[in-house]
Simulated scan of single mutants.
Amino acid sequence: MSGLKLTELSELTSTERDQALVHLVERIQHSPPYSYRTGEIRAASQWFPPLVSKSRETVIAELDERPVGYCVSLPIAAYGQLDNLLGELAVDPATTEYLAELGVDETVRRQGIASALLSRLHDGLPSATTAVLIRTLADNHPAIEFYRRQGYQLIDGVTQEWNGRGRIFLLRRKQTA
């Protein structure tokens, strides 16, 4: 996409761009397919900055200096919220990356931004990484199809209930030469 700029972040500050990014995350949380109601989950301003701080990689997409997308990953062992599922997921916590967040502003979806973010993430992973794990809503069919086109495979039989909604997992094993 012409004019798209990808930038890596290690922390969020009080800059106008970073505030706009948190606002984008908040808007996406409250839009379909998520459609969280006020009070149903913590505000993005409470959980997103700490996630970025502990991430291995955070990449934002900007158009005209305005954040339009983001991608955040961290080692699955650092995430911690999936520890009880590691056996079922059949992944090595020492070498598996967890894609915690991927979002694109609804006004610019289907223009290659999510693909660019994910490609940048994959390119930046340590060489010891053997796989990337993603969790998404079980009924978010556009996201599931997107991940499949990116080389992810559904992990059959492993689901998680979170905030009253079913989640599924997809995994992309590192391609070897």
Rank of each mutant, 00 (worst) to 15 (best):
S2L: 13
L4F: 05
L6W: 09
L12R: 01
S14F: 13
R17L: 12
R17Q: 12
R17S: 06
Q19G: 04
A20D: 15
L21H: 11
L21M: 08
V22C: 12
L24K: 03
E26F: 04
E26N: 10
Q29Y: 09
H30F: 13
P33F: 00
Y36D: 00
T38C: 14
A43D: 09
A43P: 05
A44Y: 00
A44V: 04
S45A: 14
P49N: 02
L51S: 15
V59Y: 05
E62I: 02
L63Y: 03
E65Q: 15
P67R: 08
V68M: 05
V72H: 01
Q81L: 13
Q81M: 07
Q81G: 14
L82E: 02
L82K: 12
L82G: 06
D83C: 03
L86M: 10
G87V: 04
E88P: 12
L89D: 11
A90S: 10
P93Y: 10
T95L: 12
E97R: 06
E97C: 09
Y98Q: 02
A100E: 13
E101R: 13
G103N: 01
V108N: 00
R110T: 09
A114H: 03
A116T: 03
A116N: 02
A116I: 04
L121V: 10
L121G: 04
D123I: 05
G124F: 01
L125I: 02
P126H: 08
P126T: 12
S127C: 14
S127E: 13
V132K: 07
A138E: 08
I144Q: 14
E145T: 07
E145C: 08
Y147L: 07
R148Q: 11
R148M: 06
R149G: 05
Q150R: 01
Q150S: 09
Y152K: 05
Y152W: 09
Y152L: 08
L154N: 06
I155K: 09
G157N: 11
G157A: 14
T159E: 02
T159K: 08
E161A: 06
G164L: 01
R165E: 08
R165V: 01
R167A: 00
R167E: 09
T176A: 12
T176I: 15
